[in-house]
Structures are given as structure tokens and as C-alpha cells.
């Protein structure tokens, strides 16, 4: 029961309350750039959700098995040329950023090749957005949040398992999709309006983003209310 509540709250929090775009400002570039048509926005959102889930899975696995202090694979590998107690203390967290960005870049490449080979219709709908995603901060951000909940957690029982990491990644992507689709819907209508010259393009998009962010602020505190209502820990 407690675990299900945790998962549910992580999902709601990632998708709505602390929306990646409107609260943490990650993924702003596609939010401004690709939000002109609703179909394009859906394609981009789908691609990001897809890659972010894979990246969350990989980053959680690599952090737990290799990077964190006393991780099993590292201990096993270091055991060949270090005494056991020194091997258990090997800490590779300093390599985290390099490893993550490498994982993201290569998984985007593999996903692109795989989708192009086996799902041509899917490739048509969001394949063109895939290369752009490597430099999408939302993905690295999700990996970093997961790392923050795995490494350096005081109480080992509170460290996130794979289920929670995947939930955060997937629903973070869903939240990104929600934000960018709403934005695209508004911008389609905006083309019929008479926007003052200096505001054309990015400026009016940002101001709409501000109003959307204000609307999403209405969700603040929903998570503690839900937790109380569901009786979770």
C-alpha cells in the first residue's frame, strides 16, 4: 500500500505539480522551438517520453551497479588488483556526468537506428526529433534527480528502486508532453491574432509560458493533500 502511494505521488508530482518545463525550466528549447503545431508537439513529446524512460532505466542501473560507493560491479572489478576493503571503498561518482551524457547520447543513437529499422511509421512521426533530444536538458535532468535519490541518501531504505526511477522518468516525459501540447494548441490560435511586432516569436511564447506556469502553480501542495488522503507514509 505504502509503495503504491509513493509511486502514485511521484507520478503526479513529476507530471503536474513540479512539471519539468513549467517548474524546473528544463526542455525549454523544444518548448519554444517545436511548439508551433499540435501534431509536431505530440511527436516531440512522444520521442522525449520514450528516450527519457530508457535513460532513467540505464542511469539507475549504472549508478547502482557501477558508480555509487561500494557498487557491486566496481567492487568485483577492483577486487582483482586491490585488497577487499579498499575495493569496497572505490567511489566513481566523480565520473557521473561524463557517464550520463555518454549514456544519453548513445541511447538516442540506438533508439533512432532501432526505430528506423523496425517501426518505420513511428520513425516517420517522431524520428526527426530524435537527434535533437541528445541536448534536451529534460533527459539529463531526470537522470540527475534519480541519482540524487540513489547516491548519498542517509537512510538506505529511502533510496529509490528501479520502479520509482522509471516512474519519475516516464511521467516527467508525460508532463513535458502535456506542457508542450497545451502550448502548441495556444500557438495555433495565436496565429490568427494581431501580436505587436516586437513580441512576435519567442517573446509572446515566453509570456504565455509564464501564464501557464501560473496555472500550474495551482497544483502546489496537492501532493501533501493526496498523501494525507491516501494515508501513505
Amino acid at each position: 500500500m505504502g509503495y503504491a502511494v509513493d509511486i502514485f505521488l511521484i507520478a503526479v508530482s513529476a507530471a503536474l505539480i513540479n512539471n519539468f518545463v513549467l517548474y524546473y525550466f528544463v526542455g525549454i528549447c523544444p518548448f519554444i522551438g517545436v511548439s508551433r503545431r499540435v501534431e509536431m508537439a505530440l511527436g516531440m513529446g512522444g520521442a522525449v517520453t520514450f528516450v527519457i524512460s530508457i535513460a532513467s532505466f540505464l542511469s539507475w542501473t549504472i549508478t547502482t551497479l557501477v558508480l555509487m560507493p561500494g557498487a557491486p560491479l566496481t567492487r568485483w572489478a577492483a577486487g582483482f588488483f586491490l585488497p577487499p576493503e579498499a575495493a569496497a571503498a572505490v567511489d566513481l561518482t566523480i565520473l557521473t556526468y561524463i557517464v550520463y551524457i555518454f549514456v544519453i547520447a548513445s541511447s538516442v543513437q540506438f533508439v533512432e537506428m532501432y526505430v528506423r529499422r523496425f517501426y518505420p511509421p513511428l520513425y516517420k512521426s517522431f524520428g526527426v526529433f530524435l537527434p535533437l533530444i541528445t541536448t534536451n536538458c529534460a533527459i539529463l535532468f531526470a537522470c540527475l534527480v534519480i541519482m540524487g535519490h540513489v547516491v548519498g541518501v542517509e537512510n538506505p531504505a529511502e533510496a529509490w528502486d528501479l520502479g520509482k526511477a522509471l516512474t519519475l522518468g516516464f511521467f516527467g516525459g508525460v508532463g513535458f508532453t502535456i506542457a508542450i501540447v497545451i502550448m502548441a494548441g495556444i500557438r495555433e490560435e495565436l496565429e490568427l491574432c494581431d501580436v505587436p511586432e516586437p513580441f512576435k516569436g519567442a517573446a509572446i511564447t515566453l509570456i504565455i509560458g509564464g501564464i501557464l506556469a501560473m496555472a500550474f502553480m495551482g497544483f502546489t501542495g496537492v501532493d501533501s493533500g493526496l498523501r494525507a488522503a491516501l494515508g501513505g507514509g
Binding site: 516586437p198 517573446a203 509572446i204 515566453l206 509560458g209 502553480m217
Partner: peptide, 14 residues
């Protein structure tokens, strides 16, 4: 708060 960032940057950009 987050909305202020969007609004300020949008207005300054304009």
C-alpha cells in the same frame, strides 16, 4: 517563482 521568470524574460526580450 517560475512564472516570473517566463514573464520577465518575455518582456525584456520584446
Amino acid at each position: 517563482l517560475p512564472p516570473g521568470a517566463f514573464l520577465t524574460f518575455g518582456l525584456l526580450l520584446a
